[in-house]
Design a protein around this nucleic acid. Structure first.
Lengths: 203, 203
DNA sequence: TTGATTAACGGAGAGCCTCTCCGTATTTTG
DNA sequence: CAAAATACGGAGAGGCTCTCCGTTAATCAA
């Protein structure tokens, strides 16, 4: 059915559709820009209507571009994905061993997860929904985590029987815990220690 | 002004106030009972009005007894605190060593935290608020965790430089992560391993 | 008992939020 | 410069939290 009969598409790449209207593209960009500001200083719970008003568009426009809050969050995050990829590369090239690299990567991921207050929650539920817009965004991070993990496992720096996905989830959980109002620096340190070394002492 | 002049309180224990009205006590009990059912099968996010209607009382009555959702959650949890205390005692008396005891206790706490879907979230924020009704409820659990931890540390089964509070928080984080829709048994197992032993292998 | 007093009830409704629908405005195309 | 297609905007439906206050029921004093 895709290209059955009749039509003669001018652009093979964009198949049949026209280019996106200029005002639409502008609005979309503006919304993402404003959303990032709003998320940064009010957390992910800002009201959608407030974002729309603040961006100078109607609610309808906001929801046409981003049907769900997650879609908007995903769009905001995607703006920063290149930074994270770049960081992965730097870590890859600058670490003494694969164990240290994994450690540094998890630290970077944790910071990424804590970019906006309340981000861990949707990241977690996205993990369970096959079709969430956030799913794609974080899949890349999970995959990279898996790569760092495997390298560390191969060199004997990380335990076997551990998947990238679960290490990602554990990191997410720690990031979530760090969002606790009273969590100070020492809490973060202890949580990191726990994730790295556990509470147990082998006798 | 508390007991300045005149009044002759009949009951020294309840100072000046009258006993709580019978209908009030009944309603309160009924609400808690219904709330537990609602939380059990709909998670903590059921609407307050729905609980009120389902309990056969007006919204005003619900909010008079439980000004916030957290207050209601705390009341529901308090009904089960004795069970947890009992479990602590059993573990205390039946474990081969203090390390195993700590492990079993954390397992019990994790189950307690996952009693209702969405419970970890308010438990976490309660940790940061001095005057949350949930705060009191979980303080007991934190304290007990601290005791199990100290015993394990004394016997060399648990690392030093770890507080009961942070171990509790880490357990809470793991419980939160387990709430992920796609989290199966193996996920839980790996998360437990991480908390106990970390991902690192000491070479 | 009974009337007075006080505690508690209930639900209407204010205010906020999400999300949809459709008449109107703008852009693109021929 | 129409005509067609696309996107806009905001009113408003529906749901939620929480308050306020007129009404009702329990308790107390005589």
């Amino acid at each position: 059915m895709t290209s059955a009969a009749g039509g003669s598409p001018s652009h093979p790449s964009s198949s049949v559709t026209r280019p996106i209207r200029a005002d639409a593209r502008r609005n979309r960009a503006r919304i993402v820009e404003i959303a990032e500001l709003a998320f940064t200083d009010g957390g992910l719970d800002v009201s959608m209507d407030a974002i729309a008003k603040w961006a100078g568009v109607g609610a309808g426009t906001l929801y046409r571009h981003f049907p769900t809050r997650d879609a908007l969050v995903a769009a905001v995050l995607e703006n920063h994905q290149p930074d994270l990829s770049a960081e992965a590369e730097v870590i890859q090239n600058n670490s003494v061993d694969s164990g240290a690299a994994l450690e540094r990567w998890l630290d970077a991921v944790s910071r990424w997860m804590r970019a906006y207050e309340g981000l861990p929650e949707p990241l977690r539920t996205a993990l369970g929904e096959q079709d969430s817009p956030l799913r794609l965004t974080c899949q890349e991070v999970i995959d990279t985590t898996g790569e760092f993990l495997q390298a560390a496992q191969k060199d004997g720096h990380a335990r076997e029987g551990l998947t990238g996905r679960n290490l990602y989830l554990a990191t997410l959980a720690a990031a979530w815990a760090l969002g606790t109002p009273s969590a100070d620096g020492s809490t973060g340190h202890e949580l990191d220690d726990l994730l790295r070394s556990g509470w147990r002492v082998d006798s």
